[in-house]
Write a protein that binds this DNA or RNA. Structure first.
Lengths: 192, 192
DNA sequence: GGGTCAACCAAGCAAGCGCTAGTGTAAATT
DNA sequence: AATTTACACTAGCGCTTGCTTGGTTGACCC
């Protein structure tokens, strides 16, 4: 076994693992399947990852970290109005859900497969992301753009967005920007 | 092996299976675990179910059918206004999510473990349920209560509701009725 | 030009998996 | 009284699983 560095090789392997985890689910993806997809033998896998669990952790960590980066960038670039920031967050969320789709689907469906330590570590990453949302929601509430409980609104909105991985078809007529706009319009009490 | 009747015994076994599926996930729940929970030996399990897959199907079918029944009853009992019907649906949805929580969590997380035939059969049940939602949403649109695309609104709302299984704590201060009210208020452009 | 090291392989172990075959038995049915 | 039915048991087959072991390869370093 090896150290748990983040070599470029390992990053590529993580990307491929994500794809298989989406297709078959974590439990049904065997180390032999993973190895074959990576073009190596199953034994060699354990040179890069301590065990199968660590591959799952790597996949989810990668996706969550990207989401955080994209969301922060989106907030820095957009206008300062509460509505613009709300929409920027929604769009960023949907875009990550698309570009890192595999990783996020894995995070949504296989979270419970993480062992307690990994779950604890990744929870902090996710909390940092959700904190961004709550900030933006607070601003929208303060601006009178939306009403209600900040906790509930944040969770309703994230639920609506995360659910899109179930039905959204990227090759369809609707763009992520489109969806973000519709969602913001739906919850906005002051039409613009 | 036996016929696939719906004896009371089988119903009870299905309920217990749902619990284990939630705790460990379908793939990690072994037939030996199921049997032990049911107080029998693993071989005896196959007297009641053709195979492990059929247990999963039974769990999901049970939950979905209940959701349909409860939603229909809620719509029949409530006022005729678009808003009352919208809220009745939301509340019914949240109540099923609570009373049949195990079955619904399984449906949400283990849907992909179903074989094609079972998935096809259960899809129709689910479609019937979602059709109820679209009717109610259409009425709300016609009444000017909400705006936007019926398809998108329906999916956003169901996403927000289904996401509650991730964070909602039934022992907390908020009732399902409470949540339903907040959700309807959030998407309603004409405050009441 | 000996040493180091990441990367890989071949072979296989121990455990656990879903499921089957064959049998026993008490209650219900004829 | 004879037969069927429902439900449970024991024993284990055949297979797959995650992971380990011991060793090879080739690129780079002083």
């Amino acid at each position: 076994m090896n150290v748990m560095n983040d070599s470029p090789r390992r990053k590529e392997l993580t990307r491929q693992a994500a794809q298989l985890f989406v297709q078959a689910g974590f439990d049904r993806t065997t180390v032999r399947m993973l190895a074959q997809e990576m073009g190596i033998k199953s034994g060699s896998l354990f040179h890069h990852f301590r065990d199968k669990q660590e591959i799952l952790t790597a996949v989810i960590e990668e996706g969550t970290q990207n989401a955080l980066i994209i969301a922060k960038a989106a907030l820095e670039q957009c206008d300062n109005s509460a509505e613009a920031r709300l929409q920027a967050m929604a769009r960023a969320h949907l875009e990550t859900l698309l570009t890192d789709r595999n990783a996020h689907v894995v995070a949504l469906y296989e979270w419970r497969r993480l062992d307690p330590e990994a779950r604890d570590h990744l929870s902090h990453l996710r909390d940092a992301y959700e904190a961004l949302w709550e900030t933006v929601i607070d601003e929208a509430l303060a601006a009178g753009l939306i009403h209600g409980d900040r906790f509930l609104v944040a969770r309703f909105v994230m639920g609506a967005l995360n659910w899109t991985v179930r039905w959204y078809d990227p090759s369809g007529p609707r763009s992520p920007d489109d969806l973000a706009h519709e969602l913001v319009a739906m919850i906005t009490h002051r039409p613009v």
